[in-house]
Design a protein around this nucleic acid. Structure first.
Length: 156
DNA sequence: GCCAACGTTGGC
DNA sequence: GCCAACGTTGGC
């Protein structure tokens, strides 16, 4: 039986990797995640074909800018083994990798950015627990319910 | 550039 | 196992 499609939101700083970069390369290994909760979502929750809201953080107008999809199962992030990488983790070994990632595939850009400021106005409808609008808001990979997905994209 | 919020580390 | 110190995230 094919598992039910799930939905996610993934943040990226456009200076590092933007939706335009993803459009250009098509598919990208989502490397550099060094947060256990975010890792667990990728490793334990994601399935090929899941929907991804692509979010630009740390920029003039943070918000959702595009749609992508999960294009692989989780596998070890190569950058953790590379001493020259900024994501190198000396505690990780090939036998016991610490960090996992999935490949993310470009689907489309939104017609316009859905700004965080606008998303916040729908916090009640999204639910208090939605990490993007919860206080702190540092999680870079988070689950999105089907209802939240629908609501967010209706703002486009 | 500032700084609040938060996750991680490491001494004890 | 506690918790202070530290580093990072990310909005503003």
């Amino acid at each position: 039986m094919t598992p039910r499609k799930r939905y996610w939101l993934m943040k990226s700083e456009p200076d590092t990797f933007s939706i335009d970069d993803l459009e250009r390369v098509g598919v990208e290994p989502w490397n550099g995640v060094r947060n256990y909760q975010a890792r667990n979502f990728m490793r334990d929750g994601m399935q090929v074909g899941d929907g991804v809201l692509f979010y630009h953080s740390n920029t003039a107008v943070p918000g959702i800018v595009g749609i992508a999809s999960v294009a692989s199962h989780a596998y070890p992030d190569e950058t953790q083994f590379d001493p020259k990488s900024e994501y190198y983790d000396p505690r990780a070994t090939r036998e016991q990798p610490r960090w996992y990632l999935v490949d993310v595939k470009f689907e489309r850009k939104l017609r316009r950015t859905i700004p965080l400021e606008e998303i916040k106005r729908h916090a009640d409808a999204l639910g208090e627990g939605f990490p993007l609008v919860a206080r702190g808001n540092r999680l870079s990979v988070m689950p999105v319910t089907a209802a939240q997905w629908k609501l967010l994209l209706s703002l486009e």
